[in-house]
């Protein structure tokens, strides 16, 4: 193994089922149902997945959901805004913890 991540590994995802086939079957069915057209469209779900992929920084998911978004008809303006949403939440989440810092500082300060 020369690198931790390889694009070819994405297609090997189902091999995870070899150790626990029943769990994999349940996961696959649930995953498929999650992304099916529902109260949200498939396109909207793909954009959410793209944003989450960036938030969790999963290169497999970024690759897969970039293509899915394009194939569901999202344009690059929409996809870029979705990434900004992820970035804003991550940035905001860090910043809002500054309140914890202020609380901690206050607790030990005169």
């Amino acid at each position: 193994m020369k690198t931790y991540y390889s694009p070819e590994d994405l297609s090997k995802f189902p091999t995870i089922g070899e150790g626990a086939p029943e769990l994999w079957k349940k996961f696959s069915e649930w995953y498929g149902a999650v992304f099916a057209e529902g109260a949200l469209s498939e396109r909207e779900k793909a954009l959410i997945a793209l944003a989450v992929a960036h938030a969790v920084q999963c290169p497999y998911c970024i690759d897969a959901y970039t293509q899915t978004c394009l194939e569901k008809g999202s344009n690059e303006e929409q996809m870029t805004e979705a990434v900004h949403v992820a970035a804003a939440i991550r940035g905001g989440a860090s910043l809002v913890h500054g309140v914890q810092m202020k609380n901690a500082a206050k607790k030990v300060s005169l």
């Binding site: 396109r43 293509q67 394009l70 194939e71 569901k72 008809g73």
Partner: peptide, 13 residues
Amino acid sequence: PAGAFLSPSQKAL
């Protein structure tokens, strides 16, 4: 498509 991916749904697009 502007690349190596498939077309979206014709009706939606």
